[in-house]
């Protein structure tokens, strides 16, 4: 793609969505530029999927401003949707149709010619590593294959923005890595990606920039590295003293490292030098059942911001 200038693809200002009394999205602001991989990170119920549906121009906002590809989704829904690719959280392939037919009918919904689609389908089957399965019914595919087909289907119109709602939830590690590879290739080609996830490793792998959401609000915004730098230490020491002892031990080691987080099963010690923190603990005569030093992740950022873990 030639155009990689900083054109605004999505602009939200005070975006709000309520269902009766329930506030799903509570006045959020963000902007996505062309070619960016933008992430919405947060636990279930944070308002990520609702935000995605509003960007996808299928669910109308209750308040605020929203512009997708320079258009208002309330007024230009079909025009906007014609230029988007959507990969929903739940696969919604036509189960009666074969793999290639799913791509064909979907391409037809964009008014694409059969001749164009014939070539495009081959390309997408190859991309999704489903060439061998072209004649299988979609209901016969494994979870990972279905997901790849759904992503391939979302690319049939060569979208300006590809939206992926929890793209790898429910997949085994190998299937996740294949998917990440495919998505990374798209990103390299300059396709704008909007991804929701509650996996911090996924967000770190794929997103240039992300917002951390909780209870319909944005808690923080930045690149994964920026967020980690701002809200966490370089390293994290995880120590376990047994579920019954963690709380008592935490009081004794208070002051070691920059900050402590006590979880039901372990204590997290935030420090720029995890090994040194462990030494200090050992010097107090406390011996952890297990200990682990790792680098800080977005999970730690989330914990810091909300006091909760991502996956409850």
């Amino acid at each position: 793609m030639a155009n990689t200038s900083k054109e605004t693809m999505i602009l939200a200002r005070g975006l709000r969505k309520t269902y009766g009394e329930f506030v799903a999205v509570d006045g959020i602001d963000f902007e996505v530029k062309r070619g960016e991989a933008f992430g919405l990170l947060g636990p279930n119920g944070a308002g990520k999927s609702t935000t995605m549906k509003m960007i996808a121009a299928t669910s109308q906002r209750t308040g605020g401003e929203l512009s997708i590809l320079g258009k208002d989704p309330e007024l230009k829904g079909p025009e906007i949707r014609a230029h988007l690719g959507v990969v929903p959280q739940q696969d919604n392939l036509d189960r009666e149709l074969k793999v290639w037919e799913n791509l064909m009918v979907y391409g037809r919904y964009f008014g694409l010619s059969r001749k164009f689609l014939k070539g495009k389908i081959e390309e997408l089957l190859e991309f999704a590593q489903l060439t061998e399965k072209r004649n299988a019914k979609s209901e016969e595919l494994s979870g990972g294959m279905k997901r790849r087909l759904t992503i391939a289907r979302g690319l049939v119109n060569e979208p300006e923005i590809l939206m992926l709602d929890e793209p790898t939830t429910g997949l085994d590690p190998q299937a996740r890595h294949i998917l990440w590879d495919r998505l990374f290739r798209l990103k390299e080609q300059g396709v704008t990606l909007v991804i929701t996830t509650h996996y911090m490793d996924e967000a770190e792998q794929l997103c240039d920039r992300l917002i951390v959401m909780d209870k319909g609000r944005i808690m923080a915004e930045g690149s994964p590295a920026e967020l980690i730098k701002k809200y966490s230490s370089k390293e994290v020491l995880e120590v376990r003293f047994g579920s019954d002892n963690n709380k008592a031990v935490a009081e004794q080691i208070n002051g070691i490292g920059d900050r402590l987080e006590v979880l039901p099963d372990r204590i997290l010690v935030y420090s720029d030098n995890g090994e040194k923190a462990l030494e200090q603990i050992t010097k107090l005569g406390l011996h952890a059942i297990t200990s682990l030093v790792r680098r800080s992740s977005l999970e730690d950022v989330f914990l810091r911001l909300t006091g909760r873990t991502l996956i409850d």
């Binding site: 036509d94 919904y109 289907r153």
Partner: peptide
């Protein structure tokens, strides 16, 4: 199979 939702994600 929720296929109506996939139809509605397009210009349809």
């Amino acid at each position: 199979d929720r296929s109506f939702y996939s139809m509605n994600a397009t210009a349809i």
